[in-house]
Design a protein around this nucleic acid. Structure first.
Lengths: 139, 139
DNA sequence: ATAAACCATACTTAATTGGTATACATTGTT
DNA sequence: AACAATGTATACCAATTAAGTATGGTTTAT
């Protein structure tokens, strides 16, 4: 039940770009140093965020990365799924062949886990980077 | 964001023992075959559930396993934590050294993840095996 | 006493995750 | 036009974690 290190990096990097909120793109080297993320790993990670439309990249000299949309339009779910793909808390939820025995299509455990998953995803959807910046996430 | 295969096995095995609800203990070999879980792996898994007080084991000939407490007193969280230990969705939550840079003690992302985790754990606590058996888990 | 069960520990293998390397494409500057 | 500074793409390697197996031991009903 962990988010990956890469997912964690992604959350922090997106938060950073949102906070910087600058006109000119930030260079990966700067971000790598600031967030203590291995440069190559960060570059790879950025490509995933780029594909997902969360950040924009600028190639060439004086290139870099900047945020692609408003922080209140970026949810934690968006970022985590951009990195790790769709969230499934159990294999049997995306592939019925894993539903231990192929019982009555979906077993009772399957149902329970699906409910847990649904609520988890909802929670992740309900927190935006804007919420995070403004300290609106209470617990 | 996955529960482990072992955790999944554990949920199914506990459900099975609760449903069987017999006086005499069930032998691991029978359970292994019924749930299609490798025998040795199952034995190891049962020891964890035993330590956590969820099931009881009986040694010697005619030994086996049976449920140790009422299904309405066993939550999904109990089972998953018995197998995998306490739930932390991110390393920085149990070990502040991982909180990327040691910024202002706990960073904004940390707060958000803690909230997500808290709700996840609550959800897992609120579903008992009894709920599962009775089909009370809707989604 | 014996056989059928579970217990404990250690080991091995497989899968996933994290990180690196190589070669390439783009773009601003000189 | 050449160059250097950037990002891109793919493939590879290493570390960690999860899954499964093996060996030898203990308990207990018969």
């Amino acid at each position: 039940m962990r988010i990956t290190q890469e997912g964690d990096y992604a959350l922090r990097v997106v938060l950073y770009l949102c906070k910087e909120n600058m006109n000119e793109p930030k260079k990966s080297k700067i971000i790598s140093e600031h967030e203590k993320i291995p440069l190559r790993f960060l570059l790879k990670l950025f490509r995933k965020l780029n594909k997902a439309g969360i950040i924009k990249s600028f190639r060439g000299a004086e290139g870099g990365y900047s945020i692609a949309k408003s922080p209140d339009k970026i949810t934690l779910k968006d970022i985590i799924e951009a990195i790790d793909g769709p969230i499934f808390i159990n294999r049997c939820i995306y592939d019925a062949d894993f539903c231990n025995l192929n019982r009555t299509n979906t077993c009772d455990i399957h149902h329970a886990l699906l409910k847990i998953q649904k609520r988890l995803v909802e929670d992740l959807e309900n927190i935006t980077i804007d919420n995070v910046i403004k300290g609106e996430v209470q617990f």
